[in-house]
Design a protein around this nucleic acid. Structure first.
Lengths: 134, 134
DNA sequence: TGCTAGTTGATAAACGCTTATCAATAAAGA
DNA sequence: TCTTTATTGATAAGCGTTTATCAACTAGCA
C-alpha cells in the first residue's frame, strides 16, 4: 500500500507552487523548504512514481536535463532562460506546425522551445527585478 | 599547421552525403565506409574542430544526443523519427513563433522539433520502402 | 502504544556521452 | 626518401545524471 509521507507532500506541493516545470535538482531545493532533510534519491523515486501514475509528465528540453510538470494541461510550449536556466510555461501554440513535414512523414507530436532571457534576467529595462535563484 | 588526413575527408564527406544532421555515432559508422579503421575519438575531435571553425553547428534535440549539420543554412527545423532515430531537415519555419513569449521576455532563438515516423518507417502505405539503417 | 512493512537518506554504483592519454602512424616539406 | 610533428586509435578517465543498495525510520493500523 502507498503511504502519505511528508516528503511526497513536499514534492507535490513544491511542484504546484512553482508554476513552471522543475528539474529534479530544482525540485530538491524547493521541497527542502518544507522537509529540509529530503534526499535526492527520494525526489527521483517520487518523480518516477508520479510519472507512472500519470500525474506528472517529463518535459524534454534541447541540451538540458528533463523537467517535470503536472499532466493533463492543454497543449503548450516552453521558454528556457539561458541566464537563470529556469523553464517557463507559455500559453498556446501557433498551430499548423506539423505541416512542416514533407509528404510521407507521419507527425505524432511536436515540441517548441524558445530561448532567451526571462523578465527577471533581462539586463536593462528590468522593472520589478526579483532575486534570481537557480 | 593543419593536415589533410583521409579521416577528416571521410568525416566531411559522410556529413555532406548524408543530407541530414548526424550524431557522432552515426558519423562514425558512415565515415567508416571510407576509412574502416576510423576511431570514435577522431570523430569527436574532428567535430570539435569543425564546430570551432564554424563549418559545423550542433543541433540539439530534446532527449537525444546532439547531431551536427553544415553551418550557414537558412533558418529551418527538424523531424526526429522515433523508429529509426534519424533526424531529418525540414524546410522553412512557420514564423511568428517568438511571439508566444509574454511581455518582458527577450527571445533570442527558438527550436522546433517534430516527432513521428519517417517515410521509410511508416507502417502501412509505404511505397518505395528502403532498408532502414540506424 | 506497539508492530510491520512501505519509505527514506546517504552512498555507491551504473549509465551514456565526451575528453584525455600516449605510443604508433602518416602527412607534408626538405 | 628522410625527418618532423600533427594526427590517429584504443583505452582509460571524466562528467553529470539517474538508479540500486541497505540499514534506519515512520505511517498506518490493531
Amino acid at each position: 500500500m502507498q503511504r502519505n509521507t511528508q516528503q511526497r507532500d513536499a514534492i507535490r506541493t513544491a511542484l504546484e507552487q512553482a508554476g513552471r516545470p522543475l528539474s529534479p535538482q530544482e525540485l530538491l531545493v524547493a521541497a527542502r523548504a518544507r522537509v529540509p532533510e529530503l534526499g535526492l534519491a527520494t525526489v527521483y523515486r517520487t518523480i518516477k512514481a508520479l510519472v507512472q501514475e500519470n500525474h506528472l509528465v517529463p518535459v524534454d528540453v534541447p541540451g538540458e536535463p528533463a523537467r517535470y510538470e503536472a499532466a493533463g494541461k492543454a497543449h503548450h510550449h516552453h521558454f528556457l532562460c539561458r541566464s537563470c536556466d529556469r523553464l517557463f510555461e507559455l500559453k498556446g501554440c501557433p498551430g499548423n506546425l506539423n505541416q512542416l513535414a514533407p509528404g510521407g512523414y507521419e507527425v505524432e507530436r511536436h515540441e517548441l522551445t524558445l530561448f532567451g532571457r526571462c523578465a527577471d534576467c533581462r539586463p536593462s529595462p528590468a522593472r520589478r527585478r526579483k532575486s534570481v535563484r537557480r
